[in-house]
Every structure is written in C-alpha cells, then in structure tokens.
Computed example of a mutant assay.
Amino acid sequence: MDAARAVSLSRQFKAIADPNRLRLVSLVSASPGSEACVCDLTEPLDLGQPTVSHHLKILVDAGILRREKRGVWAYYSLVPGALDALADVLTTRTGTGR
C-alpha cells in the first residue's frame, strides 16, 4: 500500500471510529432506499441538528457518505463501495507472506 492510500484509508477509519458517526452510517444504511434526511437523523442520536450536520460533513469529506440537497433539506446516502473497500483492507493479507 502506498503512502497516499494509507492516508486516505486512515481518514476514513478515523471518521467511522467516532460512535456517533458509526451510528449515522448504520442509520443511513438501514433507511429506506439507503438514504436519510438530516431531519430524520437528529432524534435517534439525541443530538442537535448542528452537531449531526458536523458529523455528517466529516463522513462526506472522508468519502463514506454523499450529500444531495433537495429544497431546504440535505439527504445522505452511502458512497457505493466505500464500506466494502474498508472491509477489504481489514480482511486482505497481502504482503504478509502467508
């Protein structure tokens, strides 16, 4: 793995390492159509909208979620393959000599 890939993966793992952000990924993934409005994510986390939006921005910046603006609301969905790529890093043994 080259240095640039390691930096990118590190940022993604750091983004989902926060309990609230991990819950957000789970909530979005489990939502109908695998997308959720920010307005539907505040109550399950018992956090204010600004705090939830901050966590969502980190997940978007890390390439885990994508954001689509519809009117006054923002809808979030998983970036296709983003979680699979993280899982592959954890389960692949390339370079271990096994």
Score class of each variant (00 low, 15 high):
S26G: 07
I64L: 15
E43Q: 14
E35Y: 13
A15S: 06
S8P: 00
N20I: 06
T96I: 09
A30H: 02
M1E: 13
V38G: 10
A6P: 00
R5Q: 13
G81N: 06
I16F: 03
F13V: 07
S34N: 11
R70C: 14
A82P: 02
A17W: 05
C39H: 15
R23L: 14
L45A: 13
L27K: 02
S10D: 09
T94V: 14
A4M: 12
D88R: 12
H54P: 00
P80Y: 03
V38Q: 06
L78G: 05
V72W: 13
W73G: 03
T94W: 08
L56N: 00
I58C: 10
L27G: 05
L59I: 09
H54T: 08
R5G: 10
R21Y: 06
R93H: 15
K69G: 05
A30W: 01
T96K: 10
S77H: 01
T42C: 12
R23K: 15
F13E: 08
A62Y: 01
L90P: 04
A6V: 06
A82G: 03
L83F: 01
R98K: 09
V25T: 07
G63W: 03
Q12P: 02
A3Y: 12
S31C: 12
R93K: 15
L59A: 03
L22A: 13
T51W: 00
D88Y: 08
L65E: 00
V72C: 08
R70A: 15
A15W: 02
G97H: 04
C39S: 15
S77N: 02
N20T: 07
S77K: 04
L83H: 02
D40W: 04
I16E: 00
M1P: 10
A36Y: 02
L59W: 03
I64P: 00
D40H: 13
A62T: 01
T94R: 13
P32Y: 11
A74C: 13
R67H: 10
A17H: 10
A82K: 05
